[in-house]
Nucleic acid binder design. Structure first.
Lengths: 126, 126, 126, 126
DNA sequence: GTGGTCTAGACCACG
DNA sequence: GTGGTCTAGACCACT
């Protein structure tokens, strides 16, 4: 279900968070659908249950999922998830674009590169 | 000379690296111009010399500056710097854009947001 | 008969306890009236019988209901119930009010907020 | 510095969070003041560093403190803290007051009890 | 079997 | 020495 890169600088729990958000935003996981149990995910990914727990707990605090002790964890309403995902991505994009502008990139250069990346990605997807 | 944000999550040495690159790319620092000594920068910025040293070393390894033992550190040719800065930024941008695409953003949405960020930044600069 | 919120952090058995107490205190359930059987409540609420059992047991231990083996569970005298409910609520309220006072709230602020909550609740009820 | 109740149902990290908030709201801890290190608090309280870390991290996510790896954790602006503390307390108070109202308490009864608790607390403080 | 808390102890990046 | 991440493994409350 998930795909981790253990060599990445990005913490494992962050990778898990992002993948769950991706699945929720793209509609693979529906609102109120049950997520796999913490221990099950931990086994499948070969990581410690605490690491998965941390991801679930932070998503819960952010309103992306809701966890019911004794029952499981479930996807929250799509509105909450979309808002959270959108604000996170906007922050990331803003940081990078401003960094480029500070390094004397023109708006046209940035837009052209974004367009190129998008087209390349579309090609790989098909 | 530099402007650091000690409250940022971004490591100090990364901030120093980015600012030197920015000054080189924007032409404030000319090729073969001597950089201020590690200790002097450390004193001016009120940071540990090790931190400045780390920034200089990594810039050296990346070919953006070159260090002559006993003489100091100097800005490399603008070509080296531009290539390094460009490839770093392209990698960053690609990562973020693909992340957005994976989260069901349309190319139009991304381009619109980039445009918006650019205009906002221009406004703040003036 | 009851109205549960399965998404709440509050344990299901606690919700059942509070609702039975509420019905007894408000006079909907009369003293010595028979409560519905554990299994019946469990079926109606779609919860595990153990969960209902736990609620009944704790109410029994608190003296709010009394269970006659083989005959069922019955509402205790209104005096028992009122005392229990009152002491529970006083404890809860004391805990929260003291917490507010410790966080530099003034008595006036607390009273004003209580008043506001009361008025809002009255509005929603009608 | 802190005062824990290990027998309480309230998690230790929650108790730590509340105490730090209390100290910040009451002005004992000033904005940008350095908090004791995670490991130091852990030693003083005789708890595991991970437990203290959890408290610090959640306060950081809530904007009440900011943590700089390698430097320490610091109290954020009083505005952030006040807002967070206020909203938490309002939620707690609302829950309890509504619970009382549902159990047939009159607004006057509640206000009288709050007043009584306040006066008793003032007496104990002096 | 579920999520949640906690301990013990290790390792890493940063300053 | 600082915060941050992770593992291993235990115990608890709830369903």
């Amino acid at each position: 279900m998930f795909d981790l890169d253990f060599r990445s600088r990005e913490p494992i729990y962050e990778q898990i968070k992002k993948q769950i958000i991706r699945l929720a935003v793209t509609g693979v996981l529906k609102p109120d659908e049950k997520l796999p149990a913490v221990r099950q995910v931990a086994m499948e990914l070969n990581v410690n249950p605490n690491t998965v727990q941390k991801a679930y707990q932070q998503l819960d605090a952010a309103g992306v999922i809701y966890s019911l002790p004794g029952k499981g964890s479930f996807v929250a309403s799509s509105q909450e998830t979309d808002e959270y995902a959108r604000s996170q991505l906007e922050k990331e994009l803003e940081r990078v674009v401003i960094h480029a502008l500070e390094n004397a990139w023109s708006a046209e250069e940035i837009l052209r590169l974004v367009d190129e990346i998008t087209k390349r990605w579309r090609g790989e997807k098909q």
